[in-house]
């Protein structure tokens, strides 16, 4: 089936089978491999992207369902070579170790800060309940998001 999507500001028209998840479409067709698949069943959050401005788990959306949507992936977060404040904050605060959950964490956090630019620690922790990290104990991830929120003011 043919779908038309805008990904990171660029329009793509692709032929996909209905079985293909949006995550697989991004990875295999558009070769945007920054979107990771950790569980493939919407539990771990590694595949999080924003779809029409909202953080969603792309493994549990069929590519055909995304027809007509605007998508941002981790690759599209930096603008004009300038890191997004969340990307800088994750590096500055050691908010990542193996890096596998990181794109999903950052995209989730970007959705979170869009809706709530001044989250409390508790709101950040609850906002991350759909994302597993097995490396950091979340300590520096929460710190990174706090710092990013601060720097985005």
């Amino acid at each position: 089936m043919q779908i038309k999507v805008s990904v990171n500001g660029k329009e793509h028209i692709s032929d996909v089978v209905p079985m293909m998840s949006l995550a697989s479409y991004l990875r295999e067709v558009l070769l945007l491999t920054g979107t990771h698949i950790g569980c493939d069943t919407s539990s771990c959050g590694a595949c999080t992207i924003t779809l029409d401005g909202k953080a969603v788990k792309s493994c549990t959306i069929l590519a055909v369902q995304a027809d007509g949507s605007e998508i941002t992936t981790i690759e599209g977060l930096a603008k004009n070579g300038e890191m997004h404040p969340l990307q800088s904050a994750f590096k500055e605060n050691h908010g990542l170790q193996c890096g596998f959950c990181t794109p999903g964490m950052i995209m989730t956090a970007s959705g979170l800060l869009d809706e709530n630019p001044n989250p409390s620690e508790d709101e950040i922790r609850h906002g991350l309940e759909g994302n597993f990290c097995r490396c950091t104990g979340y300590h520096n991830i929460v710190k990174s998001i706090q710092h990013a929120a601060e720097s985005m003011k």
Binding site: E28, G34, H36, F90, K91, H94, L96, G99, F100
Partner: peptide
């Protein structure tokens, strides 16, 4: 010292095995 490997991870440019075709 901030980690130099982070640049690729925070931009989605890490190279994990399943990324290869």
């Amino acid at each position: 010292i901030k980690r130099r490997e982070d640049n690729r991870f925070i931009t989605g440019k890490g190279k994990y095995t399943d990324d290869l075709v």
